[in-house]
């Protein structure tokens, strides 16, 4: 698909039109930064922040997904189908998060109809990063500030114009009428990518981690690492790829709903059995699970590391835990073990 060129004015017109036709979501300014909200006009969108406080995963995997509804007489009522929605301003790391969720939840023989239905009705318009935060490390886990994975359309800001890269048919349809981009625009975007990528120094050798982690399951290292962790769920709830849920029934004024709600492996309740036994009874085993899951389990399950390097877990951690340091410690500890042998 051809790269196109879109002016800011044309983009605003496109967004204004989309807002009339479907639910249009974008980052909007709030007191803590920017958050996802439905917008009616293009100028409500705010791309000033490096990223939103909360990730965009809720568009395909909402915090509360109604699975079943019953009326007061106990008759089942079909839940409403998900709405047609367009998400504008999603960053490449968050789009990769959605790509992961879709991949994880739409596998051969175990496809989740809810995630699939939502993704089918969603159009993702990404905007490439023009700057980074000190906590960004998408490059370290295989992403890029201009990555298009998971998106329908990627926009790269080049002053008053934007380079539009359609990724899917859906994205192509949005920009089909626009003029093709010229070589100079592609070069400018490439230069911008190099400039932004240069700001991100960290690399994580995810393949090496994948080899190391199974052998590290029983090391006392986790006890040491987990000491700082307070076992809240901030990192998992703000993670673009964390995908665990619980199913709960609630009755409000005679109407019962069965919902799928986000859950967190960092909570003791998450793994507690009905018998009272808890296989992850201590904070260290829950801390270990998060790292194992991100860099080992999901690679086995879905063929993809489930960390996109957005840095939200670092920003949100009340204890100041930095996943990059954790990974570094884990990698080095094994090296020591090897040398000792």
């Amino acid at each position: 698909m051809k790269h196109r060129l879109i002016t800011r004015k044309q983009l605003n017109e496109l967004l204004d039109r989309l807002a009339q036709e479907v639910c249009l979501y974008a980052p909007v300014r709030d007191k803590t930064g920017t958050s996802w909200a439905e917008i009616r006009r293009a100028d409500e969108a705010c791309l000033d922040e490096v990223n939103t406080v909360e990730p965009a995963k809720g568009f395909v995997f909402p915090r509360c997904e109604v699975l079943l509804r019953f009326d007061p007489q106990g008759n089942p009522v079909e839940p409403e189908p998900p709405p047609q929605q367009v998400v504008f301003g999603i960053r490449p790391c968050d789009a990769r998060g959605i790509a992961f969720l879709v991949k994880f939840y739409t596998q051969e023989g175990r496809t989740d109809p809810y995630v699939r239905a939502r993704r089918e009705k969603t159009t993702l318009i990404g905007v490439a990063c023009t700057r980074t935060a000190p906590t960004c490390f998408c490059l370290g886990v295989g992403g890029s500030p201009q990555g298009s994975e998971g998106l329908d359309l990627l926009l790269v800001e080049l002053g008053e114009e934007l380079l539009a890269e359609p990724v899917t048919e859906k994205g192509e349809r949005l920009v089909a009428d626009l003029p093709p981009a010229e070589e100079k625009h592609l070069t400018a975007a490439e230069e911008q990518r190099k400039k932004v990528e240069a700001e991100i120094s960290l690399r994580i050798d995810t393949r090496k981690l994948q080899e190391l982690l199974p052998g590290l399951y029983d090391t006392p290292l986790w006890q040491t690492l987990a000491l700082t962790c307070v076992n809240c769920g901030a990192c998992t709830f703000l993670c673009p790829t964390c995908h665990c849920f619980d199913v709960t029934d609630e009755t409000v004024r005679g109407r019962t709903v069965r919902c799928r709600v986000w859950d967190s492996c960092q909570f003791a309740l998450y793994s507690r059995h009905a018998s009272g036994h808890n296989p992850r009874h201590d904070p260290a085993s829950r801390y270990r699970n998060r790292i194992m899951d991100k860099f080992y389990y999901t690679v086995e399950q879905a063929g993809m590391v489930s960390c996109v390097g957005c840095g939200r877990c670092i920003i949100s951690c009340p204890a100041g835990i930095d996943i990059r340091q954790t990974v570094g410690t884990v990698q080095n500890s094994k090296c020591k073990l090897k040398n000792e042998k």
Partner: peptide, 10 residues
């Protein structure tokens, strides 16, 4: 750390 928070040291 990078988030400006000093982690607890044991």
């Amino acid at each position: 750390s990078d988030s400006g928070i000093s982690p607890v040291l044991f």
